[in-house]
Amino acid sequence: MSDMRYVVPRTLDEAVGAFAEAKGAARILAGGTDLLVQMRAGAVRPGLVIDIKKIAELTGIEETADGGFRIGGAVAGARLAEHPRFGKVWPGLLEAINLIGSTQVQGRASAGGNLCNGSPAADSVPAMVAAGAVATLQGPKGRREMPVEDVPAGPGRTNLQPGEILVGFILPPRPLGSGDAYLRMIPRTEMDIAVVGCGVNLTLKDGVCTAARVGLGAVAPTVLRVDAAAKALIGSRLDAAALDAAAAACRAACHPIDDKRGTIAYRTEVAGVLLKRAAGIAADRAKGA
């Protein structure tokens, strides 16, 4: 590691230039809560570390005129928690982001890093997927947008092109009567890797679900968007039959691994349980309860 270089670009173009030039030998540093741990463990040995925290666009939180949000890819969880509006509009997503690591880690860790780390068990990703968040990417060939669920390619891998940096997230404006929630199953009360994670985002009108999105984590090589579960909820009054159908859809979507954190059968079972519970919380929030 003795020949590692560290740069702190002030502009996105500078960062993209340096990243592209390094041809795969560079790693992006946002909070560093994954990267530094991996480097210490010897799992990665980058020749160049590009710190993106000094780039204004990557660290801003902006509520857009239409009621949506733009969040910089390097914004720390603690800063989102302090934002006067974000948690009111997206309580489930904020909870998910704030579940990354400990209080100390929250001062550094970002949703952008959580997504780019490519862990199927990343806590913020199912909630982002449920929220319908879109990632903004910038690379040598310019800027493009990609739905969050399309970013992960497998454990530890993403669909970002060489030299591409995640700039931030665009969250859509929320219709009235919307609510979201994220729940995860862990053995302890905090600080564990999710055995299953489930994000639900929905809109209710006169008690009927008019829109819904469901994200599931830790049950497949990538975080999943489960459209069949959303479909089961849409048009229903979130009655037992609809919830059962959505839970069954979640279970059907699971193809988890069997490891010491959980068996296939257990993860699959719990995915359905969390869907029902998260949908309940999201519905309460949608009703303003």
Partner: peptide
């Protein structure tokens, strides 16, 4: 502390070996 069938140690970090915290 989990070892697999080949005798490999699978609990070498506190992310794998879960000790109770204040919340537990």
């Amino acid at each position: 502390i989990v070892y697999d069938a080949e005798g490999q140690h699978l609990s070498a970090t506190l992310q794998d070996y879960l000790v109770p915290g204040a919340g537990e």
